[in-house]
Design a binder for these strands. Sequence first.
DNA 1: CTGTTAGCGCATTCAG
DNA 2: CTGAATGCGCTAACAG
Lengths: 338, 338
Amino acid sequence: MAQQGRRRHVSITDVAAQAGVSITTVSHVLSGQRPVSAATTAKVRQVIAELGYEPNQLARGLRLQRTNTVALVIPDITNPFYPLIARGLQNVLGPAGMQVLVTSTDADPAAEDAAVQQMITRRVDGLAFAGYQADHRRVTAAAEVGIPVVLLGGRTARPGIDVVSADDVAGGEIATEYLITRAYRRIAFITGAERVGSPANRVLGYRHALRAAGMPYSARLVVREEISRDGGARAMARLLSLRQAPDAVLCTNDVTALGALDAAKDAGLRVPRDVAVMGFDDIEIAALTTPALTTVSIRPLEQGEAIGRLLLGRLDGSAPRAAQRILFDPAVVPRESA
Amino acid sequence: MAQQGRRRHVSITDVAAQAGVSITTVSHVLSGQRPVSAATTAKVRQVIAELGYEPNQLARGLRLQRTNTVALVIPDITNPFYPLIARGLQNVLGPAGMQVLVTSTDADPAAEDAAVQQMITRRVDGLAFAGYQADHRRVTAAAEVGIPVVLLGGRTARPGIDVVSADDVAGGEIATEYLITRAYRRIAFITGAERVGSPANRVLGYRHALRAAGMPYSARLVVREEISRDGGARAMARLLSLRQAPDAVLCTNDVTALGALDAAKDAGLRVPRDVAVMGFDDIEIAALTTPALTTVSIRPLEQGEAIGRLLLGRLDGSAPRAAQRILFDPAVVPRESA
DNA sequence: CTGTTAGCGCATTCAG
DNA sequence: CTGAATGCGCTAACAG
């Protein structure tokens, strides 16, 4: 009955006793931090194998003040954008012996707060945080206590905190310009409730582009909703019921755009003939919808890798003092929906 | 410069000193394990707030022999099936104060091995493992050392190890029966390389259904490939080049089916008129392809939650001694591709 | 080349 | 109602 095997974890003391040496010696054959004779090394290794000894990282962490763990706090692991971030992170952290602790917060401020606190409590070596709220006291607290933090998404830089993001303002601009070029004249934007972060910056780019094109900006064409497929559908429904409905709708991300597509379909409208829909992120699913979703690519896997590199740089001290801000150039991916 | 703020984490000792009490007392106001006078309680709480004290979970874990962490070892977080598992897990574990450590292994045996070892080393309280290989020595090792393990996917039960899975044999059967009902007569199967686990069981169900229908089974119609979109495309290409090509293709999962769809398109074939394609898992994307993918639903979110409940049950000792095996009934989701 | 010891931060037994 | 002391498992001075 393996499950009952309370056969206690074997400790370094057990190994030392069995091998007839001190725990120091065992520690050193493991770490190579100081020379150990071939004979003892062999003996110790043999005992380790026999006993199936696995060093306790908790103890090691307590002693070394380092957990080899990085936290990834995101809105929703179920949004295909984030698994790519997670994968990119692991791709660079894994080879360095680090692991990733993931938490989904549904962008709920209280949940974000709790998650970050949990992570501090666990003494993670680094924190990657993607949130949509303006004020991150807990995140600041993490940074202040010496945990390297990198913010994911285009919020304004904070002193001493690195940021990895798509260039959201530019993204909003090129997306809008693309639509303008395609002769759309009444362009709406579906975004999140918060006035900061990636969604807000994308809206900013959208406004820039409108202004540059000499087109009017109308606040009622910017609808703020929960960032999810359902939220996108609700927002779209609202836009379609406007007396002056838009002829094109830009969505803060692809998941939201999916919902917009749902709503257009429900309303019996054809995309893009009746309304154009455009997303953001270029998740895999975007290429497979009907019509295929025109969107903006922001290379999430590479963003995840960049986060990992930033964190490693902070940890080994090889990074410059100043906060870094890595922006990924967005690119329109023209498909069928706009 | 927050990032530089090496302002050491404050410890229970700091709090005790500042509050003019012993660490024992601080510990007890936090745990409520024994009565503390209202006055001291207030004082201690105040100091905790002032100093921003966060108990160190590493130390607590070392002392308590419990980390409140569960490992999730999966092939690929980028496959939309697994984020749902992860989410389900977190849904039940989160309220219990536990966190999830995720690792993608690409189904590589060496990586799986390393991941599980890492997890043992970190003294996770539980391990959820989804792998495609037959032999999991390291997983067995984890169970033997007292870590509750639950296997995800339909491999044969092991003594004392819980399993959560879709009923893969049944799934293979109903999928095949569905195709037979729709008058397909030459049904192929694209699966993974390993001869165990979910993919193998699905093939088993497929064979059962063929036999029950009095239809011949042909080994050359079962192609083993890497389980990925590209792998699915390669396998499909191979099947289509057969002198006697199949009129329907069952894929071990939706991601693979996506690849099969790609290959059919490349070959200029129409689905389902020229070849039918059917997947497994019912990931979100399946409803959005053109043609929409007919597939088998296996409720991943609920599977993740079941895993969480199983693990919690083992941890609080409320679970029965015997290994449990929770099977989720699969259901065909008819759409357009078959 | 090897061993003794202190201490990382905390929960808990034992003793007031 | 409160404290002192021990040990969880490990690394790194310090001392041969």
